[in-house]
Amino acid sequence: MKRILKRRGATALATALLAAGTIAGPTAAEAASAPSSSTATLAPRSPAVLPTGVIISNNNVTFNGGVPVGGWYSLSVFPSGSYSYSGHMHTSGPSYNYSGVCVMRFNDGTAFVFQANGHMAGTWEPGSRNYDWNSSGSRQSIRDAWQASNGGWNVRCNKSVKLDVGSLVNSTVQAVGYVSKVIAIVA
């Protein structure tokens, strides 16, 4: 399956991950059975009445296995094409590198990867014990995908304190179902 990438403002990390093929398309069977978390069916020639936005807010983040990292993240995406992806992580132990990924796939197959990566200094390391991010903007491609899908979408978010960002992005993209195009947005 041919993968298509439109890159607008992505960092070198995201570009390298995508170019290296860490994001793979689904099989034909996966594409045929792609679920959707929300749909809005419009009658032909009806006025477009789409959902006012997708807001995944104040999601608390914790890790199993005694990892002393916690925080929150928030993702908001609107039919106008505007978005906001923000969050806060804190370590109360050794240093960690945090990676967070939210993938929003519209029913037309366009997926947007919202990604944040940062370092939290540990108890015996100079620097901040916090990692904060806040990325917002507007993309015509989000607006186009929203309209092409009549507001139908699916979203998945994952987090990690390991360095394998490529696997985290890949597993999150595959979790949303059929994807025909990936657009990276990195905080």
Rank of each mutant, 00 (worst) to 15 (best):
R7P: 03
L13Y: 10
L17K: 13
L18C: 04
L18D: 10
G21Y: 06
A24C: 03
T27I: 11
A28L: 08
E30H: 09
E30V: 05
A32F: 10
P35C: 08
S37D: 13
T41Y: 15
L42P: 04
L42N: 11
S46Y: 09
L50R: 01
L50H: 02
V54W: 12
I55L: 05
T62F: 09
F63V: 08
G66A: 10
G66V: 08
G70F: 14
G71R: 11
F78L: 11
P79R: 15
S80A: 07
S80D: 09
Y83F: 14
S86F: 10
G93M: 05
P94Y: 15
S95M: 07
Y96P: 10
N97E: 12
S99W: 03
G100A: 12
M104T: 03
M104R: 05
N107E: 07
D108Y: 02
F112Q: 04
V113I: 13
F114V: 03
A116T: 05
N130H: 14
Y131L: 08
D132T: 11
W133V: 02
N134I: 01
R139D: 01
Q140I: 01
D144W: 04
A145V: 00
W146Y: 06
Q147Y: 14
A148F: 03
A148D: 10
S149Y: 07
S149M: 06
W153Q: 06
V155F: 10
V155P: 03
C157F: 06
K159G: 14
S160G: 04
K162W: 06
L163Q: 14
G166P: 01
N170V: 01
N170L: 04
S171Y: 07
T172N: 02
V173M: 01
V173T: 00
Q174H: 08
A175R: 05
V176W: 02
S180L: 12
I183T: 09
I183K: 06
I185N: 06
V186W: 09
